[in-house]
Design a protein around this nucleic acid. Structure first.
Lengths: 123, 123
DNA sequence: CGGTATCCAAAAGGATACTG
DNA sequence: CAGTATCCTTTTGGATACCG
């Protein structure tokens, strides 16, 4: 296990920024939003999120589980079945993230317009 | 200008995720929060955020400016003076980000506790 | 002061192969 | 199915030097 992993390391950053970065991380955001509606199995999450590698999804889920935002329920059956859901803490975080995501959807068109204007102004 | 820059490239990602990632990016979050209170000069921002390199701050500000969230006001004086502030779009985004940051501060202790429990459970 | 350009180190992230 | 382990590429980010 010599893999670079944001679970460990980063002892040099204040805990505040650390939590903020887990929650706002590329895949963290999408996992929280996906799990807000209902619990998902591992492969369901992959499909729901799209274009995420197994490695990154695993890493993200482990980080969020460690932070107490995600609950992992591994059923001892064959083939294995693992369900991920949000804890109370996770639901609170997801609500915040969802606000951000909703804003993004609402305002995306304006952002795109701003970008076009910016690019044209210096071409 | 062959530097890897998230302003350009990334044509392969949907615009929704792209905007979301700018707003939730490591330095984007902190810039939006810092600018929510009042406008800042470049070096003020560096001090306010702490531990951010010139390069990353510049890059972040350019991205947010291009997205129409940040307004850049460069006064033609010597020595140069540049003030950064939020646009209306930026204030909206900052309000969302602030919700997330406030939640993080409120719940940080619980997250830390969850982590300790998680780590002890498998040591 | 407020940047840009360049180089380099570190981290994130993907592909593949393998396992219980 | 739900991961791990390994290798490799890409991206991020810091340090430094320089410029208008």
């Amino acid at each position: 296990m010599a893999v670079s992993n944001w679970n460990q390391g980063a002892e040099d950053m204040c805990p505040y920024r650390l939590v903020l970065e887990h929650v706002t991380s590329r895949w963290g955001v999408l996992v929280l939003i996906a799990l807000e509606g209902r619990s998902h199995r591992f492969s369901e999450l992959r499909r729901a999120i799209g274009r995420v590698s197994e490695k990154m999804l695993t890493q993200t889920l482990q980080t969020l589980e460690r932070d107490g935002l995600v609950h992992r329920d591994a059923k001892p059956v064959i083939p294995p079945r693992v369900d991920y859901s949000l804890t109370e803490l996770g639901r609170e975080a997801a609500a915040q993230v969802r606000g951000l995501a909703a804003w993004t959807e609402r305002r995306m068109a304006d952002v795109q317009k701003a970008r076009t204007a910016y690019d044209e102004a210096r071409s």
